[in-house]
């Protein structure tokens, strides 16, 4: 077995055998919650990675699109009896649709101006969650009792829910991996480095940016739906600006533009506060200090972009062939 296949198998085993085994071993609802939470935030961080890390668009309203997905899934489920199999894609698509509408006027803005625009959009969506009481039930949030029903099979056990979440997250991350480690990802990286130059090379800058933004919001919507289905209760505070910042921190701590790094960053920032639960009130301060320390001492992130790209090319065998016969890199 080649090294690349070994690593892939190891990752799949870790997600679908080792973690569940540990969870069953401890058998506490609390650990299942943390595991699903970590999986959901890994997906959120990976989706933000595509737009902020790879395409270089600083997005400060990611939690709002996560919220759109959660609210669509919860309201459809609670009021209209739409189940998991239809609600999940619908949640992603509605987040993507809103992102598309937002992207049309704002995508020509540059750097900090775009960041500010996304901040405003995020806050506007948050105000809608908070104040459109007829639709979203305002600050009281939405209760969703239906749970996960997969093609007629009701999944109720904690382990089953973990498997569903892990499967959805794994497939989504696989898609994001193919997108960011391919010619498509390279084109997005060229926008980040110099969009005028990329445009001169024949890349349609605006269309590419809109695509990255919409795809990223689609997966944020999926993550939101997973959150709504697993917790059964959502409230506007789950999608506050501070959550956008938390996701952005995961991306920066993990490494801008590095998918494996971003996943490690998400795990670290979800598990660290839980592991520090025993120290009580100062755990959030410690999280702040970890964030500060990692920016100061590891400016490229835990797993920098260059080494992450090498890792992805050689070991995950992403979408490059091994350049045999000097024909240049190409599709497999």
């Amino acid at each position: 077995m080649s090294k690349s296949r070994l690593i892939k198998t190891g990752l799949v085993l870790a997600a679908f055998a080792v973690v569940p085994a540990v969870l069953v071993g401890f058998d506490k609802g609390y650990y299942y919650q943390i595991a699903t939470l970590a999986a959901i935030f890994m997906l959120l961080a990976a989706s933000l990675h595509l737009v902020t890390g790879v395409a270089g668009l600083l997005q400060l309203g990611h939690a709002a699109f996560y919220g759109v997905g959660a609210y669509v899934a919860a309201i459809l489920g609670a009021d209209h009896g739409v189940g998991f199999t239809v609600g999940l894609p619908l949640a992603g698509l509605s987040a993507a649709a809103i992102a598309f509408l937002v992207a049309l006027p704002t995508m020509r803005l540059m750097s900090i101006y775009f960041a500010v625009a996304t901040l405003a959009i995020g806050q506007m969506l948050y105000l809608v969650f908070l104040n459109w009481v007829d639709l979203t039930n305002g600050p009281n949030g939405v209760m969703l009792f239906s749970g996960i029903n997969l093609f007629g099979i009701e999944i109720e056990s904690d382990l089953g829910i973990y498997y569903v979440v892990a499967a959805v997250v794994a497939v989504s991350i696989l898609v994001l991996n193919r997108l960011s480690h391919s010619y498509y990802g390279n084109a997005l990286r060229s926008l980040r480095e110099d969009d005028q130059c990329a445009s001169a090379m024949g890349i349609n800058v605006t269309v590419m940016k809109i695509q990255a933004f919409v795809i990223s919001s689609f997966f944020a919507g999926i993550a939101g739906a997973l959150w709504a289905y697993t917790t059964g209760y959502i409230s506007p505070n789950d999608f506050h600006f501070s959550q956008s910042i938390l996701i952005l921190t995961m991306v920066v701590v993990g490494g801008l533009g590095s998918l494996p790094g971003v996943l490690i960053g998400a795990l670290l920032l979800i598990l660290l506060p839980e592991a520090l639960r025993s120290v009580g009130d100062i755990r959030n301060i410690i999280v702040g200090l970890v964030m500060f320390g990692s920016i100061l001492f590891l400016p490229k992130g835990l797993f920098g972009e260059v080494s992450a790209l090498n890792f992805a090319r050689r070991l995950l065998g992403a979408n490059w062939s091994n350049d045999e016969g000097q024909k240049g890199i190409g599709w497999k």
Binding site: G56, L58, S111, I112, I245, L248, T249, V252, L256, D281, I282, N284, I285, V287, G288, L289, M291, F292, I295, L296, P299
Partner: peptide, 25 residues
Amino acid sequence: SRAMREATLMSSLAMSIIAREAMEM
């Protein structure tokens, strides 16, 4: 450079988290 701008953005954010949490504690 963007890198420096993003680093200070995040470091001031980290400081704000630390300050807010400390005051809350």
